[in-house]
Simulated scan of single mutants.
Amino acid sequence: MDLDAYVLAHHADWARLERLLKQHRLSGAEADELVERYQQVATHLSVLRSAAPDPTLVAHLSSLLARARNRSVGTRVGTWDGVRRFLVDRFPAALYRLRWWWIGTMAANVVVTAVMMWWLLDHPAVEQGLLSPDDVDQLVNNDFEGYYSQYAASHFAAQVWVNNAWVTALCLGLGILGLPLVKVLFDNIANLAIIGSVMIRHDRGELFWGLILPHGLLELTAVFVAGGVGFRLFWSWVEPGDRSRSQAVAREGRTAATVALGLVLVLLVSGLIEAFVTPSGLPTFARVGIGLLAEAAFLTYVFVLGRAAYLRGETGDIDDALLEDRVASQG
């Protein structure tokens, strides 16, 4: 393709789009023209990329399209309707679409934790190699229960939220590397298994489960969701399917960002339960019941709201309108 001739033929279209972007206010007809010019220039960019990928020209048109995209949809996505759509459509749809990845991660972790606890209980000598008798006595009689009441509830909720958000961020951030994610998850459940086996061996099992389950069900579910999404991100570049490897990784990366943002809210709920319910004076059955209700609410959110959104075509990826147009072209 003759690049100079192509530029000469379409330069007026690009200049017109730029003039529209410089106007402070647009009439209805001009707003419609902005959208049409945006689509037109997107097609031109696609043609140039496939036939004559001049870096300077591609960068200029990409910048022009980004400004046009922000001008045409920026006000819409910043409204409360965007928040509602995220909570009702994008986030639950992402959870539902990737359900088998995080359910599989959850099942594997639960099984490994159970096996580790059983093995540790059957091999008490291992406990002596991990903790001194004084450490065990301190953990069983003071530290474990005292951990949930050593700070003011509001401060503790913030501390727990930040800590759990960091763990989920590690799961999502390290997911694309594969093996580091396995280590993060293993370290998380190994700590749980060791403490649980020590508490159960010293007849404090009821206290252990009574303090772990109220917040732990939702909290660990959030971690396993992050782990499952991280594994899906890793698999997207191992086996990209019918997309290019970069497209597959980009799609799952954007979905991972959606999940990360949504899990901030999930972890906020689990943090509030851990700060205000777990150490409360409520009977054990009531505290555990609250934890079960929170977990049931999350699963209902995924498999009712998420399934409905997924069937409507939502995937958890961002809107097509916010992505750079990729128009098929023939050279």
Rank of each mutant, 00 (worst) to 15 (best):
T75L: 10
I103F: 04
T278R: 15
H202L: 02
G104Q: 08
V304R: 06
L65T: 15
M106T: 15
P214E: 14
H10I: 01
E36G: 02
D137E: 10
L57S: 03
T105K: 03
D187Q: 00
L45H: 12
L121G: 14
D81P: 06
Y301H: 02
T255Y: 04
Y310N: 05
L267V: 04
L322D: 15
V302M: 15
L120W: 14
A226M: 01
L61F: 09
W100D: 05
P214V: 06
A107S: 14
A12M: 10
A42I: 11
P133E: 07
V162T: 06
V35C: 01
C171F: 11
S154M: 02
M116A: 14
R19I: 08
S280F: 06
L65M: 14
R312N: 06
H202N: 12
H215M: 04
A42H: 09
D319E: 15
R201A: 14
G210A: 05
T315Y: 06
G196I: 00
H44K: 00
N70H: 13
A51S: 14
Q247W: 04
L130T: 14
T43Y: 12
E36H: 03
E295F: 14
N163Q: 14
W119M: 08
T56Y: 03
V110R: 04
R69M: 11
R67I: 04
D137Q: 07
V41W: 02
L292G: 08
Y96N: 05
W118D: 15
F298L: 15
L213Q: 15
S329T: 15
R25P: 05
T300P: 06
E274A: 13
A68D: 07
D319F: 10
T56N: 02
L170F: 11
V110D: 14
P133N: 07
A108K: 03
F208N: 04
L267E: 09
A59T: 08
L311G: 01
R16T: 08
D319R: 04
N142A: 09
L48M: 08
Q128L: 01
D122P: 00
Y38G: 03
R49Q: 13
T113D: 10
E30H: 05
G262Y: 11
